[in-house]
Design a protein around this nucleic acid. Structure first.
Lengths: 158, 158
DNA sequence: TATTGTTATACTCTATAACTATA
DNA sequence: TATAGTTATAGAGTATAACAATA
């Protein structure tokens, strides 16, 4: 009896009780985010974009001339953290900065014309990878999940 | 017309098009995780536990004697990263390490008796904070969301 | 006064290679 | 050979305070 209890307690194969954590949206969403982002770098290896870098270039592509500040608000990134990311992306030709025509403080962000097709390619890769890593869910479940997540972090979904 | 276009492009109040990102579970789950974890440190300020530290002590409480390796597998933490976390938690009396009775390589983790009530308190705080940060969702939506997230990262839910 | 972009800084989290003691 | 714990190290990601230039 004692030996058996010890085996139950310490064997690596033993089922670990994680019921409390699994009742927390914070834990589950962190685990899900890790799972989805794990393969991202591999999938994006040829293009060399990190998840955050990808989110920047795709938003800039769909919002040409967006300012650093607006981008920070949109992606919930602290403005100081954006500085290095933008500098690095600009050095790698993913971004171009142009002075704002009316506001001398602001700088508009753009995708250099030759890189636009690369950004589109990155968007395809990101989408395919996202789909591949969530293939255990039906299309309906994925839509539901996206809507619930957006509702959770403040994007009011219809 | 030109001036109007410029305003649409660069004004900070302009609605930013993020439709592509919002179709990605990776993006939405990262945003949701950030939203939920943002308040965690504040809520846990008195006890001084980070989200990862909390996940460790609660799993140890519900699985006394669990090894570092099993904990790493359970929480998807790399074993080397657990070393410093466990050492720090042990110094702060949140954990106790005891040699495994049969396997001289392994070390079992336990909550020191005087700290058990603190861990329970931390669990209450974590749960309340999680609920507070997801109050825009109904109970039913929260259950659905938890199940979909678990299914996504590999915890097969019924 | 408020906002944009920025510097400096620190802390948390995650990842990989390689070692040792033991199984 | 494989596993448990560990060391060392690096790189992302996130956070805050404070500054100059401009609005």
């Amino acid at each position: 009896m004692v030996a058996r209890l010890s085996t139950r307690e310490l064997s690596p194969e033993r089922v670990v009780d994680t019921r409390l954590l699994e009742g927390l949206l914070g834990y589950n969403s962190r685990r899900a985010a890790l799972h989805l982002i794990a393969g991202f770098s591999d999938a994006m290896a040829d293009l060399g974009l990190s998840p955050v870098e990808f989110s920047i270039v795709t938003v800039v592509r769909h919002n040409p001339g967006i300012t650093s500040r607006s981008l920070a608000r949109t992606l919930a990134i602290q403005p100081p953290n954006l500085v290095g990311l933008i500098r690095s992306l600009e050095q790698r030709q993913w971004l171009k900065r142009k002075p704002h025509p009316n506001d001398k403080r602001a700088i508009g962000l753009h995708i250099p014309t030759p890189s636009v097709s690369l950004v589109k390619q990155a968007e395809s890769i990101a989408y395919e990878d996202d789909q591949a890593r969530s293939k255990h869910l039906t299309s309906d479940e994925k839509v539901k999940l996206n809507n619930l997540l957006m509702k959770l972090y403040g994007k009011v979904s219809a």
